[in-house]
């Protein structure tokens, strides 16, 4: 895990070969100085709230004052026993699978295409693909509801007119189609972000290399495999992590489009936690339980990530060779 983004060891001596005047210590001193602001902010705004929420997860606490009603592992036991939690976890996982195996590669292909200086209007294309990212989610929710309405919505009208279906499809209302529909909307909404990250990553590919590949007619796939991917690999792994994490935390869109329904067919962990811990109709928020559910969710995804780590490492090393 910790080594996924590390530089190959072979390079280390190269850097050490230049022990200049101030020596190694001075060099590292600077590096540590450079890390200070990040460590302070990271410690204060990420690690500390995180530790606090671990602490809260052992209490029955409503979020006001100091937690005092220690319940041990009761919150965790409740989370682990809840079928609804596991159902939500599975849906969250499906969201991340869709993001990793559909959104990520598609965005890379389009980024490569839109990175070509010979493509006219490429700035316009980029803007268009990016716009859904900044469209207000709540408004998108209602637009989608109107477009996908089984009773007279545009999409169903087109499907019926072209004879692709003979019965209107109840996209959001049927337990079998709601999740795939929501996944597609999620890919649509988040695609621009991934695209932009890929575009940034592609800027690290030296132009000479790209041009060389093009001139010797290496072919798209060969160029991708032997020129582009190896160079962008360190950033690609960050993008992968990012997409994975973002897809696990899908919340606004689910709330705006289906609120987890129908019959919880689109319930994800963030909406599950919200419903059980913060719903304004609850008498008091259950921060302790929410924190426990968050911790369990975090640990589970960490395990999933660790399972990917050896694979990532191999890709990284392969890329570097």
């Amino acid at each position: 895990m910790t080594t996924t983004v590390e530089r190959p060891r072979a390079k280390v001596p190269a850097a050490q070969r230049t022990p200049r005047r101030p020596g190694r210590f001075r060099k590292h001193l600077w590096s540590y100085l450079f890390l200070v602001p990040m460590v302070l902010l990271f410690g204060g705004f990420t690690v500390w709230p995180l530790m606090a929420s671990w602490w809260y997860s052992f209490f029955d606490w409503d979020g006001v004052g100091t937690p005092s009603n220690w319940v041990g592992f009761a919150n965790f036991a409740e989370v682990l026993r809840a079928d609804a939690f596991w159902r939500a976890f599975w849906h969250s996982l499906v969201f991340s699978l869709a993001a990793i195996f559909v959104e990520l590669p598609l965005a890379l292909v389009l980024a490569i295409l839109l990175n070509n200086s010979w493509l006219r209007f490429r700035n316009l294309y980029r803007l268009v693909l990016f716009l859904p990212v900044v469209a207000t989610t709540a408004v998108i929710g209602i637009v989608i509801a109107i477009l996908l309405d089984p009773a007279g919505g545009l999409v169903n009208r087109i499907l019926l007119d072209t004879g692709l279906v003979d019965q209107p499809v109840n996209f959001l209302g049927s337990t079998s189609t709601a999740l795939p529909t929501l996944l597609s909307i999620d890919v649509w909404k988040g695609f621009g972000i991934t695209l932009i990250y890929w575009l940034a990553a592609l800027q690290t590919v030296p132009k000479e290399l790209q041009e060389a590949a093009e001139i010797d007619g290496a072919g798209f796939w060969r160029a991708l495999r032997f020129v582009t991917l190896p160079v962008v690999m360190p950033i690609a792994i960050v993008i992968l992590l990012l997409v994975f994490q973002r897809s696990l935390n899908t919340f606004d869109l689910v709330r705006a489009v289906t609120e987890g329904g129908p019959d919880y067919a689109t319930d994800v962990v963030p909406t599950y936690i919200y419903r059980f811990a913060f719903d304004p109709s609850l008498q008091a928020p259950r921060y302790g339980f929410a924190s426990a559910a968050g911790v369990v969710f975090g640990l589970l995804t960490l395990v999933v990530t660790l399972l990917q780590a050896p694979f990532l490492r191999r890709r990284l090393d392969g890329g570097r060779r």
Partner: peptide
């Protein structure tokens, strides 16, 4: 560095608390 990077990545996945109170 390894420790720090590992910590950074690990915190990406652990939800950052469900209350704003510590912050």
């Amino acid at each position: 560095k390894k420790v720090l990077v590992g910590l950074l990545i690990a915190t990406m996945f652990i939800p950052h608390g469900y209350t704003i109170i510590p912050t």
